Amino acid sequence: MKTESIEFYSGPDRVRAIWRTPEGPGPFRAIVQGPGWLGLKDAKDYLRYHEGFTDAGFGVLSIDYRGFGDSEGERGIVNPTHQLEDLINAVTYLTTREDVVVGAIGAFATGGTGGGNVVMLAAYDERVRAVVSQFPVADGADWLHRMRNEWDWVEYKKMLEEDRRQRVLTGQSRMIHPRNEIMVQTPERLGSDFKSDVDKKIQMSVPASMVDPLLRYRPIDAARGLETPLMVVTVQDDATTPTDHATAIFEAAAGPKRLLVQRDTGHYTAYAKYADVVIPEIVSWLDAYVRPLGGVIVKDESTASSPFRNLGE
């Protein structure tokens, strides 16, 4: 596997990314990856996925969203609109490379807003042939609500409303902790070393104004009627990103789709426990659909692995 550090512009800011490919000149079919909630492109836990992609002949472009890691932009702000733009611009960047099959680009992301973002990417960018959404958030307001007891949620909403009042009067927002005062860490997360190799690079003081776009964040709306082939991966009884968020996205999609539910594990332990099962399934899904749309497209409902065949290429 070859690794190259690259950069491209998204808005006025430079986004930095890792481009991993198999050995050889290509051109390669390509996968875009946006990290999950507060994730970075170079987290070691992503490497097993990248190896799976490159072993199957794909190139994989893993980005740092604006404001995170090595990318430019306001530090530590999860802005769903900007993150979607970053993914769309990553797809455009891939079309400029001679070592990419331009008509064969897919997307993969895991964890909260990462999983939700690729659903939105699939809805808004027809160049993306197929996506895999692992542990997605479907509705930001519901996600933030369900992390809290009802009395905590009531007080939280009061804090946000007071912050909005102060912002319009002073231009200043209260600073809060993104892991404890936006997302709330579960006992599993507190006992896990998942992404511990990159946590020290994450801004741990952000303005409360960051919450408002998350309350409006609704990948479930993008999933309704989605025709792009979609695989959704979840964990039974997930306490971090609710299982029913993943199943709601799956059920809302109208095109070819597959749902994988991992049992007897947790949100963070599933990555390692089921890697040897889930990663081949992800690769198989992308291999079936991330192909140029040449020739004649024939739908065959009886074909279990891939209901579409490309003819005449």
Rank of each mutant, 00 (worst) to 15 (best):
M1V: 12
K2T: 13
Y9Q: 12
P12R: 11
R14K: 14
I18R: 10
I18V: 12
G26W: 07
R29Y: 05
I31P: 01
V32Y: 01
G34Y: 04
G36M: 00
W37A: 03
A43R: 12
A43Q: 13
F58L: 00
G59P: 01
V60R: 01
V60I: 15
I63N: 02
D64N: 03
Y65N: 02
R66T: 08
G69R: 03
I77H: 07
V78D: 14
P80D: 04
E85T: 11
D86F: 00
I88T: 10
R97G: 07
D99K: 00
V102H: 15
A104Q: 01
T110M: 10
G114M: 00
G114Q: 00
G114I: 00
G115L: 02
G115S: 05
G116N: 03
A123M: 01
D125N: 11
V128F: 04
P136I: 07
V137R: 00
G140Y: 02
W143P: 06
N149K: 13
V154D: 12
E155C: 08
K157F: 06
E162W: 05
R165P: 03
V168T: 11
T170R: 03
G171E: 04
E181A: 04
M183D: 14
T186W: 08
T186V: 06
P187Q: 06
P187C: 05
G191T: 09
M204I: 13
M204W: 12
S209F: 01
S209T: 11
Y217H: 03
Y217N: 04
A223Y: 02
E227F: 14
E227P: 07
T228Q: 00
T234S: 12
T234M: 05
H245T: 04
P256L: 05
R258T: 07
R258N: 07
T269N: 13
V277L: 14
E281A: 13
I282D: 07
S284V: 04
S284C: 10
D287M: 09
A288R: 10
L293D: 12
I297C: 09
S305N: 13
S306R: 13
P307F: 05
P307D: 09
R309I: 14
